[in-house]
Amino acid sequence: MNIVVAIKHIPSIADDVPVKGNNVDFDSVDFVLNEWDEHSIEQAVLIKEAVGGTVTVIGVDLIGELDNALHLALAKGADKVVKITADDPAADSHMQAKWLSEAIKGMGANMVFAGVQASNDLDGQIGPMIAAYLDMPYIGGVSSVEANSDSATVNKEFAGGAGAKYSVSMPFVAGVQAAPKPPRYAPVSKVRQMAQSATVEKVAPSGDASSGLTFKKMAPPVVTGHAEMIEGSSKEVAAKIVELLKSKGLA
């Protein structure tokens, strides 16, 4: 089974996301692996463990710092890692999906996985776009994939724990919501070992696409309301919350 996982390196939202002009200030923000990509990598490795095969993880290197994410993928069980050397932190989903598609085209993938979404998918997610560019069907919200010989049984989640089971002929693209198991932990020593010994294949970006969106403005949301903030030490905060709950008959 030949599985390709397309990942996205995105600005971290753990802190404030700084703005410069009409876009994110890419120079003053940390880039991290899209959290859903951890699940698509896990799903791919689980399939490899179940039926054999290879897992290739590929991403666009926007700021020259993708290697860490790729070494981590290797430590978690990926066999091969590829980076598209773009050096364009503002590359939108369309652009990235196009580059990824061109690179994935010759890989003979049976399945392509991507995270179901990313927090910077302003122009949509790369998964369905890769499917469109490669003329493969796309299914998102995926919570498990079981590979058979030339098809897979795929679980798609709806809301509230409901879902549906589909049979999908290969090749196809799946947007992974969650792997059947929480993403595994890779010890730092193993990641370091990969960083020293592994080869990251480099590919030049090929193809062209654009979101077709003109950014007119980017700013923190206009706040229409704000919580009444309870100040003080943790004990004081706790006391005030308990008092509030009691006053409303909720405790």
Binding site: I13, V24, L122, A219
Partner: peptide, 10 residues
Amino acid sequence: AYGGKLTAEV
């Protein structure tokens, strides 16, 4: 976008 931390007008 960005987890609700930014609003973009496009």
